[in-house]
Design a protein around this nucleic acid. Structure first.
Lengths: 231, 231
DNA sequence: ACCTGAACACCGTTCAAGT
DNA sequence: ACCTGAACACCGTTCAAGT
C-alpha cells in the first residue's frame, strides 16, 4: 500500500476567494459609491459576496483597512521636479496632494482618520517634503514642524472643501442659497457686522482660490522664516 | 359637590427631570471621563438616570448636542485686548482657543465634528477675529480666508497634539519610546534619510513649541501679505 | 489556509404609549 | 409637556466550526 507523495504539495488547493488587494480595491469603489459613512466592514463584505468575518483574515481591523486605503489613494501622486526652487516643489506637492484627495469621494476623511503615514508611498512623499525643506536651509526642527503643518493643512483644507460641497448638494440649489441667506439674516446686523460683510466669502465654496490662498500664506511664512534665520 | 377651581392652573405639575443645560453639563463630564468615543447618547442617558429616548425631547440629535457642547467648551474663552496691534490680538485669540480646547478631554474632536460656529459665543469670537483682520487692512476676501484658516489650524493642531498624547499613554513610557525606536529602525536608512534624521522632532510631543511655530508662521505669512498689498 | 455562522456588545433614532 | 418601552436598522469584532 503505497501513497503517492507527489500530489501532497498541492493538496486540494482551492483558489482563495479573497486577497488584500481585492479588498482594498473594493473598498475604494464602495467609498466612491456610498461615501465614508457607508464604508463599513459589513457593506464591504456584501460587495465582495462574502461574510464580514472573512475580511479579518486579510486585514487586522478597520483601522488597518483605512491605512491601506490612504496608501492606495496617495499612490497616484507624482513627485515634484527636483530641479525647481524649493517653493515651487512644495507648491507642486501641495497641488498634487489635493488633486489625489479630490479623485475619490471623502478621501480626505480617510486620510484624516487613518493615522500618520505608514505605507511606503506616503513615507516616500513625506521624505521628499522634508528633504526639500532641509535642502532649502531650514533647521531640522523647523523642517519637521513645517512638514507636519503642510501635511495637516492640505488634508484639513480638502476636508472642509468637500464638506461644503455636501452641504450644497443636500438641498436644491435654490434652497441652499436661501438657507445661507436666512442664516445671514438671522444674525443681528449690529451684533455681527464683519461676519455679515464677509458672508459671501465665508459661504463661498471656491475651493481652488481658498486652497491657493492658504498655500501662498504658508509659503510666505516659510520664506520670511528662512530670511530671518539666514540674516 | 363643588370643585375648587384654583388648582387648575397648576394641574399636577411635576418638575421636569431634565433640561438642556443639565444634558450639556453631563455630556461635558462624560467627555472628561470616557472621551469622545465613549460619549454616546446611551451612556449619557445612563449617567442622567434616564432612558436614551428621553434626550431627544431636549436635543434634536447627536449632531445638535455636539454643537451645544462646542459652544459650552468655547464659553470660557476670553476676548483679546482691542488696543493691542492686530498680530498680538490674533496671537492672544489663538492661545486662548488652544487653552480652552485643552481643558476638556477630546474637546478638539468635538469642535472638529460639530459644524461651523452656530452658537452666539462662537459667532462672537469669529466676528472679533474677522474684525481684527479687516481693521488691520486686509481685503474682505483675504480676511475671510485667513479667519477660516486660523480657526481650522488651531482645531487641527490641538487635535493632533492630543492624539499624540493618547499614543503615548497607551503603552508604558519605556514601551512607547521603544515603539518609536522600532518604527524608526524599521525604515531602511538609505530610503528615508530625512525622515530618520528628523524622527525625534516628528515624534516629539512638545505641543507648546509646535503650536507657537505654526502661529508664528501664519503671522509671518499674513504680515508679508499685508505688506505686499500696501506697497 | 481560508471562510462561515452565529454570537457579543454595542450604536443613533423613532414612535406609540404612558403620566 | 415630558418620559418610557420597545423596537428598527444598523455597527466592529471574535471565535468555534467547517472545508
Amino acid at each position: 500500500m503505497k501513497i503517492k507523495p507527489f500530489n501532497v504539495s498541492k493538496p486540494k488547493h482551492i483558489e482563495p476567494a479573497l486577497d488584500q488587494g481585492q479588498i482594498v480595491q473594493a473598498a475604494i469603489d464602495l467609498l466612491d459609491e456610498v461615501g465614508f459613512d457607508g464604508l463599513t466592514m459589513r457593506n464591504l463584505a456584501k460587495k465582495l459576496g462574502v461574510q464580514a468575518a472573512s475580511l479579518y483574515w486579510h486585514v487586522r481591523n478597520k483601522q488597518d483597512l483605512l491605512s491601506l486605503l490612504a496608501e492606495e489613494i496617495c499612490a497616484p501622486m507624482r513627485e515634484p521636479d527636483r530641479t525647481l526652487p524649493w517653493q515651487k516643489q512644495l507648491e507642486e506637492m501641495a497641488n498634487e496632494f489635493r488633486r489625489v484627495l479630490l479623485v475619490h469621494r471623502d478621501a480626505a476623511q480617510v486620510l484624516a482618520s487613518s493615522g500618520g503615514p505608514s505605507g511606503p508611498k506616503r513615507l516616500r512623499l513625506t521624505e521628499i517634503g522634508l528633504r526639500t525643506l532641509l535642502d532649502a536651509g531650514f533647521s531640522e526642527k523647523d523642517a519637521a514642524y513645517a512638514g507636519m503643518l503642510m501635511n495637516d493643512y492640505i488634508i484639513m483644507s480638502v476636508l472642509e472643501e468637500t464638506r461644503y460641497a455636501v452641504l450644497e448638494a443636500e438641498g436644491t440649489s435654490e434652497d441652499s442659497s436661501l438657507d445661507v441667506q436666512n442664516w445671514v439674516e438671522s444674525l443681528q446686523a449690529n451684533e455681527y457686522p464683519s461676519l455679515i460683510a464677509l458672508a459671501n466669502y465665508l459661504t463661498e465654496p471656491d475651493g481652488d482660490e481658498r486652497f491657493r490662498f492658504g498655500v501662498d500664506l504658508l509659503r510666505n511664512g516659510l520664506e520670511s522664516l528662512l530670511a530671518r534665520g539666514k540674516s
